[in-house]
Design a protein around this nucleic acid. Structure first.
Lengths: 210, 210
DNA sequence: ATATTTAATTACCAATCGGTACATAAATTA
DNA sequence: TAATTTATGTACCGATTGGTAATTAAATAT
């Protein structure tokens, strides 16, 4: 089944996906500027010329590591976005985020939200990519809340855009909390409090939900 | 009147406070790792030996620049904490933050919240100082909300600790929003939404849930 | 076997990093 | 004026930065 046409020259001694996983964890934990190519080559166990041949440059390696990160983390996000109600979307999203942001075997916080927030000019391209991803996340929330609004789910005065920015802001704040040492339990308590005061619903409806 | 005893040797050609202001803006915008001593010496218009003689090291310069930042930004925070009710505390704090984080002539976002979130091992001491400052801010909020609770202001089920973490998290998220290009108006709309759903405000309705 | 293709290895590049030695300039004190 | 004190300017330090040239090793194709 796995008969992928042997390539011609000397075979690679590393698996690109595994190498990207290692690069991802380093960039995730230490950021773009805080991670040197020397650290990367040692952790990935690849010589520098091989690494450059495979991934192009430090900047490109970061972008590929970011895509790898999104592949692994976007699953529970897109799953949450498919929940039947806006409330359940936020519930799933934030509760799962509280856990994701405090995984024991992974860096704390979200790679997209924490990366290159303040950085030198050399890191500007990477910074722009991360900003775009943050906006993309908020746009996905907006789209989902607009649907909820069309389905008559939200209260009259509630703006879908404000709601999307509210959830995105909470998610980003939770990343800083996690990176600053907040425990999983503390984040979960925070999320439960947010859910108990969810703006999209009236108190009476909230009572029925639980 | 300003008869401050002339020092003995050759006089400094720079004002330490003005120099710190410049260093602060650079570190604020580009972070600790993203700002080089070469950039600093040029922007501050001080030779490297003079800079080292005056401020010790890059790490120490950052810490002094941070203290300078706090001196300038902590005023509206401590003023907000003295508002008569918890609601007004949050109102003043977040509305003023929305403006502070989007000043036109200053870097976007909060230097404490955005600095060294992910960084290399060399920046670890600076990272720890920033984490401590974030915790200090949340602790000040906690203290204020505990007072509000003692004054019978909050509903029975509301934990002051959760409330403090909620506001701190929002403030941190707003910093990322500002750093990612969010406008002042968008942040103000967000804050107004948060205030409209402030847990202590509609106490009677929310009390039904728990 | 030989040629060809591709990767690994070693050694190296100019540029920049944070930090300093050394000599000089400008002030006060004696 | 001479001695002392402090800051300045120049020139430099070893280490590290991201990135490569050139050679060798290991596979397939002819």
């Amino acid at each position: 089944m796995e008969e992928t046409r042997r390539s011609r020259g000397r075979p690679s001694q590393f698996d690109a996906q595994i190498a990207l996983e290692t690069a991802m964890e380093l960039f995730w934990a230490q950021g773009y500027e805080g991670t040197s190519m020397a650290e990367l080559t040692e952790a990935m166990n690849i010589n520098k010329p091989s690494l450059y041949a495979a991934f192009g440059s430090k900047e490109n390696l970061f972008k590929l590591a970011l895509e790898h990160y999104l592949k692994g983390s976007i699953s529970f996000i897109s799953a949450a976005l498919q929940a039947p109600t806006a409330y359940e979307v936020v519930q799933q999203l934030l509760l799962n985020s509280a856990r994701f942001l405090t995984q024991e075997d992974k860096p704390a916080g979200c790679m997209v939200n924490l990366g290159s927030l303040s950085c030198g000019k050399e890191a500007a391209p990477v910074q722009q990519v991360l900003i775009a991803r943050r906006k993309q996340f908020e746009a996905a929330l907006l789209q989902r809340f607009e649907r909820a609004q069309a389905e008559g789910e939200l209260t009259a005065g509630t703006q879908a855009a404000d709601l999307a920015k509210y959830v995105a802001t909470l998610h980003q704040g939770m990343s800083i909390q996690a990176a600053s040492g907040a425990s999983r339990e503390a984040l979960e308590a925070l999320v439960n409090m947010v859910l108990a005061n969810w703006p999209g619903k009236k108190a009476a409806e909230l009572h029925l939900e639980n």
